[in-house]
Structures are given as structure tokens and as C-alpha cells.
Design a binder for these strands. Structure first.
Length: 490
RNA sequence: GCUCCGUUCGUCUAUCGGUUAGGACUCAGGAUUUUCAUUCCUGCAAGAGGGGUUCAACUCCCCUACGGAGUACCA
């Protein structure tokens, strides 16, 4: 019985504009929308706001789609998946915007403006620089044009925009789920543009029309939109449409203060991917920026977050992006992840570093990742630190070498162990471990005097998984060879 | 300049008038790991300031200060 979208459904949208990469602020907005939709059995739509042809960036769309999908923020309706309320690119809905802009003109609620951009610039300059600076804004120059004048100019082909007539002396009040009632005086608003000279709509017009026809029930967007909200209220009134429920999300600030931006560290979602951050770690971390489940719970599965998510638990204050905490959380999820899920990220990096060939046996790689994942904060770190499993160390940790220099029986210990390993008939992690223990006992030496030199000689570093496991993986011959080479070097 | 929003440990936050203001990250110390990391324990650390309302205010109201956003034919 219903064609298109049903009325009562919870429907939210994420509406990025294809001007560049998806940054974490946008990702957080998308994430809150996603969580809200899933929690309420609603729909999460993706709409592309490509109404500014001058800022369009080739490749931005792909980056946005990839980023969202990488984080698991799959949309129910939108580009590439379709839906009943399309098209989901605003550039493909131009006729709709024009139709409704014209309608407002006919109703006398909007008007054509023929002012040149030069005049507008000059106007703003005088408003800003005069002795007593006043609020800036359009001076309604063309609002008083008669119907005949407008007709003549239009017929003459003069370029024009359509502006909304802002009513005088009205208090515009709307509800924000997060902040409560917010009011603006209409006199502080100017007659803003609805339709540009090139026939494209401005954000204000397009977003109101689309949210209406896409039956968006809740608008969860960044709080930089608060000051535009009264304009949208006026538009909904002009059209006679019901407004959606608004929730303006607090911004994310950088650690150095100010809005998070590209200049202040890696702000794009894909940068975090490249750095070795797990998608769920970013997801979980971002969810906690501005929202809290209400108790002390921080590490959550997607299902838990969906279950616990409610709008009234979103705070109003801007939060600072704490990369240390993200790192901690990422480390937590890496430790928890299975070696199998980490493999696709780690293996290509190892090939890239020339430690292994692309056809290297995965089943041999799994145990190595297993040994290393617990001590890595980033996925990329795993590949970077397990070089010694595959290649002879080319350099030795300075601090560890200094300690070894103080040990006078160093060569003796290493020689004994090399000989010991070589003579093992049942070479395995267990037998190597047993060898270490019996050697320490007979010589009356602690692990620091035995294990440490071996570790440095074989791996080049002062820390890592149990040495007997490392040696078992590397193999008898290679281990002995590395020990002997190290002795030679001394 | 004007408009709007915000303000609990350094950071993310809990508290919806009555608490020794709790947790997490960071940092410091300790235990475990005969290494490192992990893990565990302990510690450091907060209601911007000033007025009200109330028996009682971090919590409600006002002012100030500070921070942020907007002020485009950008979103």
C-alpha cells in the first residue's frame, strides 16, 4: 500500500560532501547515526551533497565509501545500494530543488536577486570595517523589486539567485535532543540564498527538501549546524512540512586545542587504517567521544554499543581526541584478535619489507603473529618488529649491547649454548628450554647471564617472546649460525 | 563586531539536589613475567569565578571569565 518510504520508521542519514577524505569527525557523526538506526530498527541512509561544483574532488567519493565500509558503517540506502527515495546524489535532484524554490517565489516567500558578487563583497566590506561594525548579511536590495522588473530582468537573461524572505521580529525556537530549546531572533538572520546562479541549490534548500522526501525522522549532525538550524526551521514552515527531530553533536577537538584538522595530525579515517589501527578499535574509541553507556563500560562489541546507544546519553561538550587512549584501545583489540584475522594485514607488510616472499606458508606465519600480537599497539608494528624471525639481525640494540659488554664469560656461555643446541637430537622448543635450565643450574648462572646474551645474539633486541619458542621457529642450524656469527663479532 | 553553543581530574567520562565526587587513558611506584610487552595492585589528579533558589547544589537560575562554532551564490 505504501509506495516509497513509510512514515513511522526511524530514518537517519549521513550526508557528506565529496570535497576530500572522510575525517574522524565525520566518521563519528556517521557512527552515531548508524548506532541510532540499528538500535531502533531503522534505516541508515547515505546521501551525497555534491552541490558545490567548485569544491568537488575527484576520488573523494571512493575514499568516503571505502572509509565507511572499512569501519563497518554500511548504509541501507544510498549510492551503490539504491533505495526507494533516490537518487541519493543531490546533483541528480536539481529539478526537484528548482521546482520547490520556484514554488516559494510564487507564494511570495522567496524572491529573485540580481545582485552581483562584486556588490555583495563591497556590502560585506563596509559592514565589517565601518566605525561601528554591524552584523553582516544581505541588505535585501532586490526584495523590493516589482514583479514587472523581475520579469524584465529574467527575460533579459540577467543571472539571478533565489533568496528566502526572512520574517521580521520573530523568535524562532526549536528543540534539540541534546541541548533542549534553542532560540534565535529572525532579525539576526539575513535573506539567504536557496538556489544559486548555476541552478544548484545551497545546502539549506537541498537538505530540507531531501530530508523531507527521504522521510528522515532524526537529523544527527555536527553542531556547526546549530546556527543554520533556524534557517531550516523557516524553510520547513514555508513549505508547510513537519521538521525532523534534531540532535546536534559536539565537535571533536584536537589535542592542541581547536577543531581537529588535517594539519593537527592524522585526521582521516584511512590514515588510521594505514597506521595499523583496527576498525573496531577506532569505532569503539569514537563512540566514546561524546557518548557514554552510563556505567564504567568502555570496551564494547558492536552489538553492545547498539544495545546501549541512546541519544540522551550524548553530551553537549566538545571532546578532545586523545590518541594515547586510541592506541591503548587498539593494543587491546590486537591482543584479542586472532592471528588469522591479523594475517591479511601483516603478511603484505612483511613481503613489502622483503622478509618473506608472497607465497610464504601462512600456517608458519600464524604462530609468529600469535607470539607478537600481544606486545603490539598497532598492526603495522607487528610486521616491523618480527624481522628476526626471518632474517639475521643487521644491527644490535645499543642498550643491550652495553650490558653484555660487562659480562666477562659472554663468549663461553654463547659457545656452550651453540654447541648444546647443535647436539640436540630432538630439537624443539621444549628441549631447548630444558637445555637452558640444565645449563644455568650446572653453571650456577641466572637467566640474565644466559638468556639475555642468547636473545641479543639471535634477535638483536632486548625483548620479545620466550627464547626457546623463537629458536624453535628459526630452526637449529640458523640459530647456531647466528650465535657463532655473534661470537665471531666479539 | 554580532549570534548561538559549551565549561567535573592533563584527557575521555559517571553523577539526573543529600556520594569519602566513581571508572578509563596518561604518568609514577610495586607485584607477576628469570627479557620486553601483557596482566594485576597502589598512588597522583577535578566540579572556572561570583551571585542567587533550597534545610541541602557539581547538579536548578543569573552574571562574568574562558573555550568553541557560525556569520558565503561552502557544506
Amino acid at each position: 500500500m505504501t509506495i516509497g518510504c513509510s512514515m513511522s520508521e526511524i530514518r537517519v542519514r549521513f550526508a557528506p560532501s565529496p570535497t576530500g577524505y572522510l575525517h574522524v569527525g565525520g566518521a563519528r557523526t556517521a557512527l552515531f547515526n548508524y548506532l541510532f538506526a540499528k538500535k531502533n530498527g531503522g534505516k541508515f541512509l547515505l546521501r551525497i551533497e555534491d552541490t558545490d561544483r567548485t569544491r568537488y574532488h575527484e576520488g573523494a567519493l571512493d575514499e568516503i565509501f571505502t572509509s565507511l565500509r572499512w569501519m563497518g558503517l554500511d548504509w541501507d540506502e544510498g549510492p551503490e545500494v539504491g533505495g526507494d527515495c533516490g537518487p541519493y546524489f543531490q546533483s541528480e535532484r536539481l529539478e526537484l530543488y528548482k521546482k520547490y524554490a520556484d514554488e516559494l517565489v510564487e507564494k511570495g516567500l522567496a524572491y529573485h536577486c540580481f545582485c552581483s558578487s562584486e556588490r555583495l563583497e563591497q556590502l560585506r566590506a563596509t559592514q565589517e570595517s565601518s566605525e561601528n561594525p554591524q552584523a553582516t548579511g544581505y541588505d535585501r536590495h532586490c526584495r523590493g523589486l516589482s514583479a514587472d522588473e523581475v520579469k524584465a530582468k529574467l527575460a533579459a537573461g540577467e543571472p539571478s539567485v533565489i533568496r528566502l524572505k526572512i520574517p521580521d521580529s520573530q523568535t524562532i525556537t526549536f528543540d534539540d535532543v541534546i541541548r533542549g530549546k534553542i532560540s534565535f531572533e529572525s532579525d539576526t538572520l539575513d535573506d539567504f540564498v536557496l538556489l544559486k546562479t548555476d541552478g544548484f541549490p545551497t545546502y539549506h534548500l537541498a537538505n530540507v527538501i531531501d530530508d523531507h522526501f527521504m522521510r528522515v525522522s532524526h537529523v544527527l549532525r555536527g553542531d556547526e549546524w546549530i546556527t543554520s538550524a533556524p534557517k531550516h526551521v523557516l524553510l520547513y514552515r514555508a513549505f508547510g512540512w513537519e521538521t525532523p527531530i534534531w540532535a546536534h553533536l559536539p565537535v571533536i577537538l584536537s589535542e592542541t586545542g581547536g577543531k581537529l584538522s588535517k594539519r593537527k595530525g592524522a585526521a582521516s579515517v584511512m590514515d588510521y587504517y594505514r597506521e595499523g589501527v583496527l576498525p573496531h578499535a577506532l569505532f569503539n574509541f569514537l563512540a566514546l567521544l561524546g557518548w557514554s553507556p552510563g556505567d564504567d563500560k568502555e570496551i564494547m562489541t558492536l552489538e553492545e554499543m547498539i544495545e546501549l546507544f541512546t541519544l540522551d546519553r550524548i553530551g553537549a561538550k566538545p571532546s578532545v581526541f586523545d590518541s594515547k587512549k586510541l592506541e591503548w584501545m587498539n593494543g587491546h583489540y590486537i591482543t584479542e584478535a586472532s592471528a588469522e584475522t591479523l594475517l591479511p594485514e601483516v603478511k603484505p607488510a612483511l613481503v613489502e619489507l622483503c622478509y618473506i616472499n608472497a607465497d610464504y606458508d601462512d600456517s608458519k606465519l600464524i604462530p609468529v603473529i600469535e607470539m607478537m600480537k600481544g606486545r603490539s599497539k598497532k598492526v603495522t608494528e607487528i610486521a616491523g618488529t618480527l624481522n628476526y624471525f626471518f632474517v639475521k639481525p643487521s644491527e644490535f640494540d645499543e642498550g643491550s649491547m652495553k650490558k653484555l659488554a660487562k659480562q666477562d664469560n659472554l663468549v663461553e656461555v654463547l659457545t656452550d649454548i651453540a654447541n648444546g643446541i647443535e647436539s640436540l637430537t630432538d630439537f624443539s622448543a621444549e628441549s631447548v628450554d630444558a637445555l637452558f635450565h640444565s645449563y644455568m643450574e650446572t653453571k650456577g648462572l641466572g637467566f640474565g647471564k644466559v638468556g639475555m646474551p642468547i636473545r641479543v645474539a639471535i634477535t638483536g633486541v632486548g625483548g620479545g617472546p620466550s627464547m626457546h619458542d623463537v629458536i624453535a621457529f628459526i630452526g637449529k642450524e640458523e640459530s647456531v649460525a647466528r650465535l657463532r656469527a655473534f661470537i665471531e663479532m666479539k
